[in-house]
Amino acid sequence: MGRHSLRERFIESGVMTLHQRGFFGVGVREICAEANAPQGSFINHFGSKEAFAVAVLDRYFERTEAIIAATLGDDTRTAMDRLTAYFDVITDALAGAGWRHGCMISNMSLEAAEHSDLIRGRLEQIFASLTQHFSAGIRAAQAAGSVRADLDPDELADVLLSSWHGAMLRMKVERSSKAIDRFKRVMLSTLLIPPASEPAPNPGHA
């Protein structure tokens, strides 16, 4: 039980530490200090800093999946509302952090994927899972007639998520909501437009 608790302490502390300071921005000694744990126990539990980062990514993604379940998986909402609700919930979290830390999945992709096949492989799996969730949501919205049906839902989900993660990285640079606002204003209104049989009102006419 003690070993399990110590591992949990490392992971819980690591979610905050790696999210805020990045994979290369913190060393094993600092990770142990943040977790208030002896340095020797780090190797016993994880073997390497890369394996630790994967465990932290797993915990972070568990929380992301909980948000997905509460938004994309909420069948009390319309199919389109489920899609937009996910982005709204994440936006609130980003705002709460002062637009500083972004998404750990995006951050780790930019920082560590080139240097670690172990981390890159896990990130690839995470992105595949995210795309699958959004593809299902888009497919449901297409069936409901609220999203254009002329695009493949898998490709649409991939483009949407790539744009979203790019916006979060740009947000960190600007330290503002501008990139997030642009994503919602432009991407959601162009990629997820209503079917051609339901044209948008002409603003030039009353």
Rank of each mutant, 00 (worst) to 15 (best):
R139T: 14
S5C: 00
D117Y: 08
D158G: 01
P203I: 12
F24W: 09
S177I: 03
S146N: 03
A37D: 08
A97E: 15
D181I: 11
P153C: 05
Y60P: 00
E62Q: 13
E8S: 13
R77V: 00
A149M: 06
A66M: 09
G204M: 10
A143I: 12
T78C: 04
R122E: 09
P203V: 10
S197D: 13
V173L: 14
S197T: 15
L130S: 09
A157S: 14
A140R: 14
I193K: 15
L72K: 06
I67Q: 05
A206W: 11
L94F: 14
D152T: 02
E12L: 15
Y86K: 04
T190H: 04
K49V: 08
H205S: 11
E34L: 01
R63F: 06
M171G: 07
D81P: 00
L160G: 03
D75F: 04
A53T: 15
R175V: 04
K178G: 06
F61Y: 15
P194A: 10
P201Q: 09
G40C: 05
T76I: 03
G145I: 08
M168A: 12
A33K: 11
I43W: 04
S106I: 09
S109C: 08
E50L: 07
A179Y: 04
M104K: 02
R29P: 00
T131G: 04
G47A: 08
D58F: 00
T91C: 07
A55M: 07
L161C: 05
I180G: 01
A149R: 11
